[in-house]
Design a protein around this nucleic acid. Structure first.
Lengths: 230, 230
DNA sequence: GGAGTTTGTTCCTCTCAGTCGCTAACCTAG
DNA sequence: CTAGGTTAGCGACTGAGAGGAACAAACTCC
């Protein structure tokens, strides 16, 4: 009886859409499958959920096998996929997480693993393609109305470096003037007082900034139809 | 071996946070538990996921037992809860959905079921309280930057009726002038040309509107740091 | 010291949300 | 029929935030 009920329960896996801006492009961490199903196709890192761990613990554990988990600057749940046919071999639910890595770290990864540009994905296994695209969409939306930029950027950076990150992540040009003004007005950026040595190239030394805090915070001004009198 | 693997798999349930504005308040559909655990506490409707259904199919099926499912004007996935201790009896994952019901329908519900104001919740079972609050937060956010109001409103309505719905859902006052202008400028509202009979009370007859479409659409103007030249 | 390069600042404009008050359209009472 | 009450709709004004562009600042190299 116990066996009956238990065997009808679906397996559950976790998946991590790990994004990073490298070489001026938004990329996702994928590994190439060597076995069926989807042999040769690329897949998001992940694995089965264990008995006594939460989903977040599980995805951190599995990601540690691909990328040093201490490098993750942000991790949040995306969605749970449940199409009965999403895995041709067995009934399987998958909960996907969005993970972010700052642009200045280069974690060691296994030989079968690559950073693929999100706008030029190779053939992906299972339903991983829509998940990766959903991850990008979530990132782009939150860059607009939260301080999530902290998770893409190094600890300190110049405005033009930050502009490159936003340009790559949003997929369109971003004006440094405007970026600076918007983020400073919202109180998200703090000047360190330091300046970056212009080096041989010349030019005015750029001021170094950091994000005021490194936990997700929502810029509430985006509530339209606000309460009266503010 | 199969038995071993299967018995270590967690059970999976679905939950529906069904919200409606009734009597000028935002309310959630809850039923009162008669058995342990949490006997006497209130719980969101839901149940176990079946072998061959998706999560959304499952939550629709379980909600049909509490409220006529045809009345649901919107249904979207909220989050999946996985704390190993969330259910004291067994390891169990729960995927929660946000469901909305238009204010003009009054579905038949079982005897143990009530519409509770979201801002005055009774003691809730399991982790249902944070889920209900997350559902309200999602609704409030989406009322600001999408056309989700269509899911709370009757098919046609006056501006002041709509104002009541937004006031109840957002939890603060909303100016009818502003509401009208914002929703019309965004192209979300269409005038039907009809007017509502003022009745004995007197006053100018109010124009009747409807939402231009009844599928979720995002008002994209909220992307700050937009692409140049728009 | 001047040209070239990159960064930072200021000014201007545009759009949209919020507020207030006036006008419109209906009712009832006298 | 008119005056007064009631609700709805509309327009003018205000303020805030965002985008664009021109100009000023700080550096290197020749």
């Amino acid at each position: 009886m116990v066996t009956d009920r238990a065997t009808t329960t679906a397996a559950h896996v976790v998946l991590g859409a790990v994004l990073q801006v490298r070489d001026g492009r938004l990329r996702v961490l994928l590994w190439q499958r060597a076995r069926e199903p989807f042999s040769g196709a690329w897949a998001m890192p992940g694995g089965t959920l264990d008995e006594s761990e939460s989903l977040e613990q599980s995805v951190r554990r599995h990601l540690a096998a691909k990328v040093d988990v201490r490098e993750l600057s942000h991790l949040e749940q995306l969605e749970t996929r449940s199409d009965p046919d999403r895995n041709p071999r067995r009934r399987e639910l998958a909960t996907a997480y969005l993970g972010l890595v700052p642009s200045d770290v280069d974690p060691a990864v296994p030989a079968d693993t690559r950073w693929h540009p999100v706008d030029r994905l190779p053939p992906l296994a299972f339903d991983h393609k829509p998940i990766v695209l959903a991850a990008r969409e979530r990132l782009q939306a939150k860059l607009s109305y939260t301080n999530l930029g902290f998770a893409l950027a190094p600890h300190t950076f110049t405005i033009s470096e930050l502009r490159e990150l936003y340009t790559a992540a949003l997929g369109h040009d971003v004006s440094p003037t405007n970026l600076r003004r918007v983020l400073i007005r919202r109180g998200l950026l703090t000047a360190t007082g330091q300046h970056r040595d212009p080096g041989r190239a010349g030019g005015r030394p750029a001021a170094l900034f950091r994000f005021h805090d490194h936990t997700l915070a929502i810029t509430d001004q985006f509530a339209v139809l606000r309460p009266p009198g503010r």
